[in-house]
Every structure is written in structure tokens, then in C-alpha cells.
């Protein structure tokens, strides 16, 4: 199944205005009244939790109501429909996409991807011994900054049965497990991307089933840090980070949000192909990150004026 990755997450939220403002402050761009997108067109849709167009919520009350995957072509949409129709209802919606439940009850959609191909440089660095990534007289940073999330990266679900979840996404949709935390859950990527993961599971009791966080890829660690600091300056509260994960190697910074889950910035994720052998590690702080920093208000050494 040539699934590329998540195209869109649809939320049914309590405080629509707060969520829309969060989306804008995070750096997404308004596409229409309820859709907020990153540079490649992937994004989130924000509706009120009682909106009649939304699929039913999970029993837990999670605000994530649907995960829409982008796939390579219409043939893939039809192949997924044929596969899932074997044991469940598959709806075809007016826009040509299909909708079905996974084995845990999450509502999934599949459509020919709306993800546009980006042609943008990554954040650049210069280091002794390596050819300069940034030419002479080009400066690396500026205080004049606007966060520009590039692409919907991954979503993380709380699930009561990780074996069942991994089996569904692996056997029915062709996802590959890249790494796993013992007893906690696998990191998975679909066949159409090399990203370390677009999906991760955390084992929880059934009453917690829902979304733990989602995130967009940024241009590099500086943008993760500068975007996160800009959120802090706007009054948003950090949950975890900035830091750098071990599995996936992605830089991270998570923020609490009015979406009923954390929202992350990430950057510089590892890429893997089918020759990669999944690693396994015990969950916990030491295996979750190589380092963890904590933001503080801008500060510099030196006393008041006249007292260097």
C-alpha cells in the first residue's frame, strides 16, 4: 500500500476560537474557515465537538475525530478499500476519499494525497572539515522570524492493545515498524515515506484511548527552538522540550494545547528503508532523549548599564 503519510487531522474541539488562534500562532496558515495548513498543504481541520459533520467520538472523549492519510494514487485508494472491505464497512465520501475504522476504533480516511512537493533548503550549518552549507557573508539566524511548519509529520495514539494496533497497520495497511519501546509501543512508517515514523503508539488503559500528540516538521533545530520560544513569548506553556529524541533522532518541543493533546514541533528525523532492522529499548527518560533543555526568558551576562 503506497500510503505516504498523514494529510490531515480532524478535530472536534471545545473551544474553537482558542484552537484556531493556537493554529495560527503555531505557524499554520488559514486555508478556509476551518482548515489550517503547513507549507506542503497538509494540516488540521478544526470544528466544534458537536458539529454534525464529524464522525462519532471515541468513548474517551478524545477531540481527534479522524486521521486522513494521503496515498500515492487512486489505485491505492481502491486497493485499501478492497482490503478493508473484507471485514468492515468502508464508506466512499463525496470527495472520493474512503473512510473506515481501524481495529481500535480510530476513524481513518484515505485520499489521493494533497501533499505538495516542496523545494526548500533545510536549515544550514557550517562545520570545520565539511564544505560550507551556507556561503560566505550569509548569516544563519535573525530576530525577524516567522515559524513555517513544513509538513504534517506524525500522530501518536494512546491505545489499549498495541499488538492489535501494530498488526492492523502492518498487515492491512503495509506500515513498517522502525523501532519500539518494550511494552509501550512501536514506531511505524507507511510504505510511501522514509520518515522514521508517522505513527507511534503508547499503551494505556482503555479509558485513555485517543491522541497523545501530533506534530509538523520544521526546517531544522534552530526553527524548532525559535518557533517554540515564540510560542512561549505569546504565553503558551511548554510540556516537554526542547530536546532531541533517540529513536528517530528528531528534535522536539511539545506544548500543551486546547486540542486535548500536546502539539509538537519536530525537525531532522532519520530516514529508513526496508533494510533497516528495528531496534528495541526500554521506555523511560534515558532512552527517550539524548538531552533535554528547558526554556527560560532571554538573559545575558552583565549588570545594569554602566556596570559591565
Amino acid at each position: 500500500m503506497n500510503i505516504i503519510g498523514p494529510d490531515k487531522l480532524i478535530f472536534g474541539v471545545d473551544d474553537v476560537a482558542a484552537c484556531k488562534q493556537f493554529a495560527l500562532d503555531y505557524g499554520l496558515v488559514t486555508k478556509d474557515e476551518q482548515n489550517y495548513v503547513s507549507l506542503d498543504g497538509t494540516g488540521i481541520e478544526i470544528l466544534h465537538k458537536d458539529d454534525a459533520s464529524l464522525p462519532a467520538p471515541l468513548p474517551s472523549g478524545s477531540m481527534l475525530r479522524k486521521t486522513i492519510y494521503g496515498v500515492a494514487d487512486q489505485a491505492t485508494v481502491e486497493a485499501i478499500a478492497a482490503e478493508l472491505s473484507k471485514d468492515r464497512e468502508v464508506k466512499t465520501l463525496a470527495d472520493g476519499s474512503i473512510e473506515a475504522l481501524d481495529d481500535l476504533g480510530f476513524v481513518l480516511g484515505f485520499q489521493v494525497t494533497i501533499r505538495q512537493t516542496l523545494d526548500l533548503p533545510a536549515e544550514t550549518i557550517n562545520a570545520p572539515g565539511a564544505a560550507p552549507q551556507r556561503g560566505v557573508n550569509l548569516t544563519g539566524v535573525s530576530k525577524d522570524f516567522t515559524a513555517k511548519p513544513r509538513s504534517l509529520s506524525h500522530v501518536v495514539y494512546f491505545v489499549p492493545d498495541i499488538e492489535k494496533a501494530e498488526a492492523f497497520y502492518s498487515e492491512r495497511l503495509g506500515f513498517v515498524t522502525t523501532d519500539r519501546f518494550t511494552g509501550t509501543g512501536p514506531f511505524m512508517r507507511p510504505a510511501g515515506t522514509l520518515d522514521h515514523h508517522t505513527l507511534f503508539f503508547l499503551k494505556t488503559p482503555p479509558f485513555m484511548q485517543g491522541v497523545e500528540h501530533f506534530t509538523f516538521h520544521m526546517s531544522g533545530p534552530t526553527e524548532v527552538s525559535q518557533a517554540g520560544y515564540a510560542l512561549v513569548e505569546k504565553g503558551y506553556q511548554s510540556f516537554w522540550g526542547p530536546g532531541r529524541h533517540i529513536f528517530g533522532s528528531n528534535w522536539f518541543w511539545y506544548f500543551k494545547s486546547p486540542f486535548g493533546c500536546n502539539i509538537e514541533y519536530d525537525a531532522d528525523m532519520d530516514l529508513h528503508d526496508d533494510s533497516w532492522e528495528a531496534r528495541e529499548a526500554l521506555p523511560g527518560a534515558d532512552n527517550s532523549q539524548v538531552f533535554l533543555l528547558q526554556s527560560r526568558e532571554k538573559w545575558a551576562p552583565g549588570g545594569p548599564p554602566g556596570k559591565p
Binding site: 472523549g61 477531540m63 485513555m208 497523545e212 494545547s257 486546547p258 486540542f259 486535548g260
Partner: peptide, 14 residues
């Protein structure tokens, strides 16, 4: 609080 001021909310996981 939630929008109706009915509950205290933790914004990490709702």
C-alpha cells in the same frame, strides 16, 4: 477551565 466553565482541564491530554 473548559469553555462552559464546567470543568477544570489539563491541556496536556484533555
Amino acid at each position: 477551565l473548559d469553555s462552559a466553565s464546567d470543568y477544570i482541564v489539563c491541556a496536556a491530554h484533555g
